[in-house]
Design a protein around this nucleic acid. Sequence first.
DNA 1: TTGTACGCGTTATCAA
DNA 2: TTGATAACGCGTACAA
Lengths: 340, 340
Amino acid sequence: MSEKNQVTFKEIAEYTGFSKTTISRYFNKPATVTEKNRKIIREALDLLGYQENKVAHILATGKTEYVGVIVPNLDLDYYSSMLDRILKTYNEFGYKFIVFVGSNDTAAEERYIEELLAYQIEGLIIMNHTLPSESLCSLSVPVVAIEREDRFINSVNSDNYLGGIEAASLLTEKTCDILIHLNSPTDESIPASQRISGFRDYCSARDLRYEIMIRDFGYSHEEVYSHAKAAFEEMETRYPGMKKGVFCANDVIANYLLGQVIRKYGGLTPLYRIVGFDNTPVGVKAPYSISTVDQQIEVIAREAICLLMEKIRQKRTGDPAARVPIHKTVTPIVLRREST
Amino acid sequence: MSEKNQVTFKEIAEYTGFSKTTISRYFNKPATVTEKNRKIIREALDLLGYQENKVAHILATGKTEYVGVIVPNLDLDYYSSMLDRILKTYNEFGYKFIVFVGSNDTAAEERYIEELLAYQIEGLIIMNHTLPSESLCSLSVPVVAIEREDRFINSVNSDNYLGGIEAASLLTEKTCDILIHLNSPTDESIPASQRISGFRDYCSARDLRYEIMIRDFGYSHEEVYSHAKAAFEEMETRYPGMKKGVFCANDVIANYLLGQVIRKYGGLTPLYRIVGFDNTPVGVKAPYSISTVDQQIEVIAREAICLLMEKIRQKRTGDPAARVPIHKTVTPIVLRREST
DNA sequence: TTGTACGCGTTATCAA
DNA sequence: TTGATAACGCGTACAA
């Protein structure tokens, strides 16, 4: 090792004449060290340039204060906003985050998890959906899912069903001839599929004319763009001259749809009312702001961390409740903006 | 500790009858263990459910394979794209990332760094600009800056000067009456300030009519929006009927400006040619795609990691070159899209 | 209030 | 090819 040998408790102990234990106590139980001696130690620490070594601390205590995070990508505003809010909880809770951005590859994701476990993370927050919760639940640390299949693991989700209802309700305020919901094929196990149910139930309960257009919008911008364009053209041909109220599965789709409307009509038109979902930045970057169902990403992120910490605590204390998955729900809020 | 006692080398050793040393060798120098014994160990590992413990490994070797990352926020596409690409280098280099998203608070940022150092990171990638490179350079680990003041530390930046030239050049292809550059007040020490110089030099060398509009666009969406709007209105009053070629400091500003143009003119107009900077997703989400100067974020991210790894190596081998900051530059590429 | 002795899980050294 | 022993830096009984 030609590394600059770092200053340890040993050096501080030798310099001050105390034992390593006392130096340790200076940090962990300062009250048990006399003020006079604390001062001596403080000065030695300063003078020798001591720098905390958490790795040794972890090995001794078993507490890493690490949380692993796996997120599908950071190109979609939804995920980057969520990660942003998750990382910011450091200021409140002190947990550090080791972050992986996931491919859609199961093997790769398993490697990420292996690696995270090797680093002794205390818990895992997962937004990826390649691994089923059935296999996730047997990990040695608590797992909290956000907006993904969550049958066997803890989770925090937006109240998607209510969101679907509210979106439909917002659109009917404006007397549309037909209500349309645009979404990707979504398995029922995924929380977001409830947006469809909420929308459908609302419409059918009121005998409203509606249609659910399921198209595989994909993930890349190119894909979403071209499918949104195709959907727009389809609506144009099939419902010419009709007032269309369109509820999009997320703000990104809503944005592209609005883009098509603008390209054709030069701006907003009474023929289209558009509402998105998530409340991500993309909704306020468009030339006309897009109404949306605000998932309250910040609240979800915070709840996820709180839930994870509670589960970590339960696990540590041997509470049998640790094994019972908890599913939290955050109530979304409708944001009325220019697109409706 | 009521923790599920994890399986260690000790248990494997006892079970197989080998010593801990041999188990360790099984992982690190498998060639020195006979195939027969490797099989025995492999089966015991499987049976007992051994899980690697990197913390102990780190304490023994001193190598964490951690890199710290500090990024200002993840709401701006530029930062989230960059972080995305940085995190993805795991697949190639194996380094793990502990990520902090920074406030503008100096004290907070210092806390982040303290914490990262305590966790024995091997290097730091920093995009925040609250701490001067002068204080960063004295850290005990190599630091690589991306698009921030970098006098005393390593850095990877886009060739901003060339980018400014290319943007201006693209606009003149289209015969504008006046060229305008929109930017925030930018200190000369910040690489991005070179975009201004490049633009200015290009215009003045060719005797083109141009103006550099410096406005404090801020960071939040609201701020950028309102300042872009104000700038648009100013251009409308001051240069009515003239063909304006506008080079925006980034895609976000370009997007809002285009938004204003659309709101007023119902779409593209020969009166405005717009080019942004960065090539972030926002440029292709607008109703009309926005021309931009592509920073090649993926290349920058990769170069940053390579540079950091080289510096880590130099430091480990005691190479005096470790202390000499290296500044790398990545050549940007002009992307012609609808807005020009 | 302080110190001794040992443990955390792994690697490195040196012998065998 | 394998094993005993001592690190790595810190926490914690227990004793003083």
